[in-house]
Design a protein around this nucleic acid. Structure first.
Length: 231
DNA sequence: GACCAGGCACATC
DNA sequence: GATGTGCATGGT
């Protein structure tokens, strides 16, 4: 399994290059993005974050002091704006109550304890919590998302009804504990999902196609080695 | 116009 | 514990 997971990693890294996730200037911006991107295309999140930035509200204080209607209006392009308004504020209230509003203190907390605390916040589930830990806190946890599940499932590596915890445990067990490795691996899976798993015909051009079928991938994708950045 | 996107909470059985 | 539903925008 270890070899298989590393083979997938190598194939995708060859194709996509180093992705250097997460797109975000600061840890706080990464956290805002993690909440706003829930079940939402990243391009819509970018608009919402740009709105917050332009309004000078991309900070814990800025968001907390903004009334709900104004905040919802700013993040409207990211969808579910009423719910996400509450989720953003719930996180920031937690940050103030537990760590005096200091992200450095938050990430200095023992990781498993912090993860449990994050999961108790309304609106923070497993994927969002792990994205925050890995991409904002540089803590080595593996992020599992819909693409991870879809790709691993398609390649027969996991069962269709595997839980989040089971999928995560697979990576944690077989891969060395490494922030850059987990960062890149998750980013690769997301890009693979976006580019190849949306519609069945495109799947045949996926860098992983040969791994699954024994057939060479179709198309010219192996020529592409752009090392492109996220979005 | 239908479908999809880097989830999550809550109701119901 | 499993399953269904609401939340909502913008791109393809």
């Amino acid at each position: 399994m270890r070899r298989q997971l590393l083979r997938i990693y190598d194939l995708l890294s060859d194709y996509f290059g180093d992705l250097h996730w997460w797109p975000g200037e600061t840890p706080f911006e990464v956290i805002v993005g993690a909440i706003l991107t829930q079940n939402t295309a990243w391009r819509n999140v970018e608009i919402a974050i740009a709105n917050l930035q332009a309004a000078g509200m991309l900070s814990p204080e800025g968001i907390l002091q903004t009334d709900d209607n104004t905040l919802a209006g700013l993040i409207r392009p990211s969808g579910y704006y009423n719910i996400k308004t509450q989720r953003l504020k719930a996180f920031i209230r937690f940050l103030h109550e537990e760590f005096g509003g200091n992200l450095g203190k938050m990430f200095a907390e023992d990781a498993p304890v912090l993860r449990k605390k994050l999961l108790q916040i309304k609106g923070i589930g497993e994927e969002t919590a792990d994205s925050i830990l890995l991409y904002a806190g540089n803590i080595p946890v593996f992020v599992v998302d819909a693409y991870t599940r879809r790709i691993l499932c398609r390649h027969g590596i996991i069962d269709e009804d595997a839980t989040y915890g089971q999928i995560q445990a697979l990576f944690l067990k077989h891969l060395p504990s490494s922030v850059p490795l987990y960062n890149q691996y998750h980013a690769l899976l997301v890009n693979t999902g976006k580019d190849f798993c949306l519609k069945a015909p495109r799947c045949e051009r996926c860098p992983l196609h040969q791994l699954l079928t024994g057939k060479k991938p179709r198309g010219k994708h192996l020529e592409r080695r752009t090392g492109r950045q996220q979005q």
